[in-house]
Design a protein around this nucleic acid. Structure first.
Ligand SMILES: [Mn+2]
Ligand SMILES: [Mn+2]
Ligand SMILES: [Mn+2]
Ligand SMILES: [Mn+2]
Lengths: 217, 217
DNA sequence: AAATATATTTAGACTACACTAAAAATAAGT
DNA sequence: ACTTATTTTTAGTGTAGTCTAAATATATTT
């Protein structure tokens, strides 16, 4: 399997997890920053290899084989992210691009040894679940901070946007995985939220709040 | 720089270090297991990028720029090998193929953090020197076991052949980097050597001996 | 239901890299 | 020096992956 094929599979996998329907050519093109015609070409190749189900004009879905392959790539991506943060002192906003490369390294032994070395973590530095060696993904129930009701509190367990800009903003506000957050008040004018993070009170926009995953206490 | 370009540069670098003259098209083709015509194509591209000096029919040599690039790839290769052996418990005969992939990961930060994490080693698991971040390679004087005189002794500091078969043979004979070896006797009939390795005496062929690097006491 | 807009596929072209076969240059042998 | 052998380069072809532009299918309006 080529790197390009792997990247397409991963993109389809991610789109599937958020929409839960067949994935459109254009959606793939957009997330991969490529052209729809290129996507069509690749889809045909993946279908030929029995990695996706494809009927012209109807979008694609992953086969069992394709889904497993995609999850193995995600597993590698996230394990490498843990390695970079835990062992090499990268911060959580610096790991993605390197992990994009490392996820394509082919060696069963390497990835399992790496997992052991890291203590078989189940989550990456952004709170996303790491599929195990069989492709099983542990599903944690979590909800967006923007969807909490006033007075509810919990801990930050993940982020939706993993862009460097967003993560650096969170660093600045001292919000990280594990932070205790309480939803104090909503400003109806701009839908911003007043929250308490580990004893300090601050105000964040709705956009920010809708990119933070919470687990209620 | 593409992976393919990097592999060519590395091959030229290695050929240069052993022959110390201009490198022929055929020599490159052989080490890269490709065809001479492919090599000619790539050489032109590398020359265009000022990575090699090239005059038709005259072979190639690395420019300063090309030499530095090659050494950075070798640096990465060998640092990853150390990582695999020291941290992930790979044995020295299992690391090469994975390192061949890892050496192409592009991130200054990664490689320097990795070097720190490993304690800035100067040698890889096969006794080969690791270029530093500036491309400086520490040259250790060492000689082949096959070229020692009777009665001389020293420690094993490297191997010339790094194939899995050879390394496993050494494992079986309990010969590893750091082993104390004394050259006891030569059998003139087949040029085999009687040696003492850390208190045990054994006989090895000349072929074996000519792939073991020694540093005299 | 027809017209229009959008999404998707096809057709054709391009780059990177590899190959085979043939041509040209260099090296070796007599 | 001339012939032969070897090495290297060129010419032409193929595959993977991308692109643009055009054609076709599906979705949305009116
Ligand atoms: Mn990532
Ligand atoms: Mn992540
Ligand atoms: Mn190696
Ligand atoms: Mn090595």
């Amino acid at each position: 399997m080529t790197q390009s094929e792997e990247n397409y599979l991963k993109a389809i996998y991610h789109l599937t997890t958020i929409t839960d329907t067949d994935v459109s050519t254009n959606a793939i093109a957009e997330t991969m920053e490529t052209k729809a015609s290129s996507v069509t070409d690749m889809i045909k190749k993946l279908a030929e290899k029995d990695l996706v189900n494809y009927k012209k004009y109807q979008g694609v879905s992953l086969t069992v084989k394709g889904s497993l392959a995609a999850k193995m790539i995600v597993r590698k991506h996230r394990l490498w992210e843990v390695f970079l943060v835990e062992k090499l002192d990268f911060s959580w906003d610096e790991v993605h691009d390197v992990a994009e490369q490392l996820e394509h390294i082919k060696s069963e032994k390497l990835i399992n040894k790496l997992a052991d070395f890291l203590g078989n973590p189940t989550e990456d530095p952004h709170g996303d679940p790491i599929p195990d060696a069989n492709g099983d993904v542990q599903k944690v129930e979590k909800q967006l901070l923007s969807e909490l009701n006033i007075g509810q509190n919990g801990i930050c367990v993940g982020v939706k946007d993993t862009s460097s800009e967003f993560l650096k903003y969170l660093d600045k506000q001292k919000i990280s995985l594990g932070s205790q957050i309480e939803f104090l008040e909503r400003e109806e004018f701009d839908l911003s939220l007043k929250i308490k993070v580990d004893h300090t009170i601050l105000s964040i926009s709705n956009k920010i709040a809708s990119n933070i995953f919470m687990k209620l206490n």
